[in-house]
Design a protein around this nucleic acid. Structure first.
Lengths: 187, 187
DNA sequence: CCGATATTTCAGAAATTCCTGAAATGTCGG
DNA sequence: CCGACATTTCAGGAATTTCTGAAATATCGG
């Protein structure tokens, strides 16, 4: 691997973290490389930069495309496919959230739904189902919130994040106002 | 593995999902089993229920304890350790978020900070560092929000979730009110 | 301190995942 | 249709992770 030290450190880190993120080392490294690269890269360039096999790069790119984290970019007068990552980090965040939800949450949600349909055949099963219902309710609430929030434009989303827990103050303020208005009407 | 069908299906699912969640099959299965079990279980009972080796269960329990997802429960007049999962699903959510952040986000944040301190030695490195700065800023913003929100009591947190994207309406309403008040003062 | 029981450690076997090189397939200009 | 190049597929070897059984360690009542 021959890369500027800064880039190399970044790429190696993504390789190492790969296993924790549920991707393999090469995929992590390819992503990191594309992310910091000023221009789209073709497979051969990635092979040279990372020192891995051509076929490994091919598979890695395929996986990144499946995640929508690598996008092919056509370069005029060049037959080879070139790839970049989406450049807006907020878009990357959305993509990551969407894909992880799809892979890590949705299957469980669907299994839970299925199991909750069944009739328990014993007290033990009844209790288990109750616990599954709790888990199901929580996941439903989270995904509903997520489906809602993901539609916000980036600017609003950022504003919401910046506000953080202070939104609750706003909620309280709202409640007070509502209380006031009710008081007026009724009083 | 001899378990009621409902429980078995749940346990097997968690085992299968394990790899996507960054834990191994046995750990997933142990967690699932403890989660739906009405009473704390000891290692031997887990061995019987799952049909895996005693040592595997021992290691699995150790890992779950490191995640704060299995807690030892002393049963009077019994030397053996018994385990449960935290029973409040919201608490489980908090624990999961905290642990995943610690394992999957913090290391990257710290690497990014370090790399951003360095002086780029080329235009390529300068550009890379710029991209890293974008990523760093996003992660900082997310973790700041998270650190903020995680302190909320469950009830408020749930309220916030239930509100979803509608908080933005509240934000707009607030802006209007502020505008009104300003108008009054100034007019 | 002893014996009984519970738990942990750990080396190596088993299973899984990752990576490679070779061959197959695809795609383009001429 | 051919030749040149680009990409993908895939069998099997390499690396890593998971799991087991045996041995070591820990803990308790007596």
């Amino acid at each position: 691997m021959k890369l500027p030290p800064l880039v190399q450190a970044f790429v190696l880190h993504f390789g190492e973290m790969g296993s924790r993120w549920g991707i393999n080392r090469t995929v992590g490294q390819i992503y990191a490389l594309l992310y910091v690269s000023p221009d789209p890269l073709n497979a051969e360039q990635i092979v040279e930069a990372l020192g891995v096999s051509r076929s490994n790069v091919s598979m890695g790119l395929k996986e990144l495309q499946a995640w929508n984290l690598a996008i092919p970019k056509h370069i005029p007068d060049d037959r080879r496919d070139h790839f970049t990552t989406p450049d807006d980090v907020w878009q990357i965040l959305r993509t990551l959230a969407e894909e992880r939800k799809k892979r890590e949450v949705d299957p469980t949600l669907s299994v839970l739904r299925e199991l909750l349909m069944q009739t328990p055949g014993s007290e033990e099963e009844r209790h288990a189902q109750e616990r599954m219902a709790e888990m199901h309710a929580l996941i439903e609430q989270l995904t509903t919130w997520y489906d809602d929030v993901k539609r916000l434009e980036t600017e609003r989303l950022a504003a919401l994040l910046a506000l953080g827990a202070r939104v609750t103050r706003l909620l309280e303020a709202k409640d007070r106002v509502v209380g006031l208005v009710r008081g007026k009407k009724e009083g």
